[in-house]
Computed example of a mutant assay.
Amino acid sequence: MIWRGTVGSAALLVAVLLAGGCAGSAPAPASVPGTPTGVPPAVAGRPSGPAGTPGPSGAPSVSGLSGPFNGTDIAWLQLAVALHERVLPVLELVPTRSTDPAVRRLAAEIREGHRADIDRFRALLDRSGAPRTNPHAGHDMPGMVTDADLATLGAATGVEFHRLFGRHLRAHLEQSVRVADTEQRSGAEPTTTVLAGAVVRTGRAYLARLDQLAPRADSRS
């Protein structure tokens, strides 16, 4: 089974990614032998074709064939699901806490984009043969809003809400870009690395827009 050979390298990658901002130094794990789930042996190893091309939103489609996944691919996809899922409740608070059109528009765009990305991440995980259970569910890691943070944010209003919202969103976007950049450089499966590139580009664009909202929606003090 493909997943069995990736457990150690995936766990190692996540540990490196989350240790002291050292994401950029994560080594590429050895490639995982075998054919992804659902791909006939006769076509294994061929270029991904349509699956590796960007869709309308700039993220790749996952409707075509994919190549072999390595430990970095699996680790990134699982971590990306956890990161995106954890920030959704933050984004969903905005319509009831902010009247700023720019803040509401940014939150809505990120929310819809993240939901679509989660579907793409999960489709690739299914294709890889990885378990559906996410090992990061419930974990508090860099870039993730804790339950306590969410409770504080939910009770905040006005300037305080915008300050906390901006802080948490920035931390999420920066970590998402950091780990996606590592996947781009160390991943093996073509569709997955293209998707990581889309996450990097959109994440940086969102950070630039967040900068423009300061100090209304961001403060590091």
Rank of each mutant, 00 (worst) to 15 (best):
T157Y: 07
L173H: 10
L153R: 03
T152Q: 09
F165Q: 04
L164G: 13
D181H: 15
G158Q: 07
G154L: 00
L153A: 01
T182N: 10
E160M: 06
L164F: 10
G158P: 06
G158E: 06
T152C: 00
D181R: 15
G166M: 02
R163V: 09
T152A: 10
A171P: 05
G166C: 00
L153K: 01
F161I: 09
R167G: 14
H162E: 14
T182R: 12
T157Q: 07
L164M: 13
D181G: 15
G166Q: 03
L164W: 09
H162R: 15
H162D: 15
G166W: 03
F165E: 00
Q175S: 07
A155F: 00
E174P: 09
E174R: 15
F165R: 03
G166R: 03
V177Y: 14
A171E: 12
E160V: 14
F165S: 02
E174Y: 11
A155M: 02
F165D: 04
F161D: 01
E174Q: 14
L169V: 12
T182E: 10
V177C: 09
R167N: 14
E183H: 09
T152I: 00
H172I: 03
V179M: 04
S176P: 04
H172L: 06
R170I: 05
H168E: 11
L153N: 02
G166T: 04
G154T: 02
H168C: 08
V179T: 07
A180P: 01
E160T: 12
F161G: 07
V179R: 04
V177R: 13
T157M: 05
D181F: 13
G166P: 04
E160D: 13
E183P: 09
L173S: 08
D181Q: 15
V179G: 03
F161S: 02
V159I: 13
A180M: 01
E160Q: 12
L169S: 08
L173Q: 11
A180R: 02
A171S: 12
H168L: 14
L169N: 11
A156T: 02
A156W: 00
H168S: 10
V159L: 09
R178G: 13
T182C: 09
L153Q: 02
S176I: 02
G166L: 02
H172Q: 03
V179S: 03
A156C: 03
H172M: 05
G166E: 04
E160P: 05
